[in-house]
């Protein structure tokens, strides 16, 4: 019998300090513990000890699917109001191969992704410099502050009627709306990144002979990157949600347009299928952003 096991107080001390890199790694990838490994005696209320369990998470999805399957097989749910999984998968297959109303799933997905990439991309490219400028210069801050504060709380969808009036129905209003959605989020993220820079870092850089431009490029920008990435993650999520809603009203293609058209033809299994695809793509977009964050800013939160 090891000492460690008989004295939980001592072994508990090795269970990874609060926060810190060790805690984060464990959270993501809980290692298999041998029976002799250290054991925390207090886990209720210890955030780092509650990491979930992939098996249980997977089981949730499986159970949900089985219930759905049974409801179809036993005829519990009225398929007109709630299509079953087999019908939904068949509809999805048809959509993926032959298409619905002569447009295939891939074309819908592509249309949606294209809009989001353009709108979100321009929003980032324009929003970040504006945010940086607002964090660096009093006059620019004063100029942009009222605009940002006024338009930021407006849900991007509220712009749609005007945008359709200006640009007609088509790609442009959706893309411009996504630009707005991403722009305000990115401005605020970049501004926060600049104002959050530790003054001693800037002072150190000046004392090392850096010019203003060099400080912007080599200190302020990298220092703001974690905030900018958080902003991008939020923005892409907001854009995705907004886009689908926008496509409900103002587009012929895209996943939002697809479910709306399917509804008018009472093809509810396509609506359900569309919802699942929209959810899956949302998860994938978030995953890509998270991986990019890990890859490009490993120093996040460790200054």
């Amino acid at each position: 019998m090891s000492n460690m096991e008989s004295n939980p107080n001592i072994s508990g001390g090795f269970g990874g300090g609060p926060g810190g890199s060790a805690g984060r790694v464990i959270e993501k990838n809980p290692p298999k513990k041998s029976p002799n490994a250290q054991r925390k005696t207090v886990t209720f209320g210890d955030g780092s000890a509650v990491t979930g369990n992939r098996l249980i998470s997977l089981a949730t999805l499986v159970v949900l699917f089985v219930i759905w399957l049974l409801s179809e097989a036993l005829g519990i749910a009225d398929p007109t109001f709630f299509p079953g999984p087999i019908e939904t998968i068949q509809g999805g297959w048809e959509l993926a191969t032959d298409g619905f109303q002569r447009v295939t799933l891939a074309e819908h997905v592509f249309a949606s992704l294209r809009r989001i990439l353009i709108g979100f991309g321009i929003g980032v490219v324009v929003g970040v410099p504006v945010g940086l400028a607002m964090g660096l210069n009093n006059t620019l801050r004063a100029i942009f502050d009222p605009l940002i504060e006024l338009f930021r709380p407006v849900p991007p969808l509220a712009f749609i009627p005007l945008l359709i009036l200006w640009f007609g129905i088509g790609e442009t209003p959706a893309v411009v709306m996504l630009f707005f959605a991403a722009f305000f989020i990115m401005v605020i993220a970049a501004r926060a990144g600049v104002t959050g820079v530790r003054l001693s870092k800037v002072h150190a850089a000046y004392s090392l002979g850096a010019s203003k431009q060099q400080i912007l490029r080599n200190v302020i920008l990298p220092n703001a990157l974690p905030e900018i990435f958080v902003g991008m993650r939020v923005a892409i999520g907001v854009c995705w949600g907004t886009l689908v809603a926008a496509e409900l009203v103002g587009a012929q293609t895209g996943l939002g347009a697809m479910i709306w058209t399917a509804r008018t033809f009472f093809r509810n299994e396509l609506v359900v299928f569309g919802i699942i695809i929209i959810g899956v793509i949302g998860v994938i977009l978030d995953l890509i952003m998270r991986k990019a964050e890990e890859r490009f800013i490993p120093w996040r939160g460790r200054g």
Binding site: S200, A204, P222, I297
Partner: peptide
Amino acid sequence: TGPGQDRGMVFQQGALFEW
């Protein structure tokens, strides 16, 4: 009149560039 590299600074902590 301003900061310059003839005077080097060492701060308490957090002034390194973590990137």
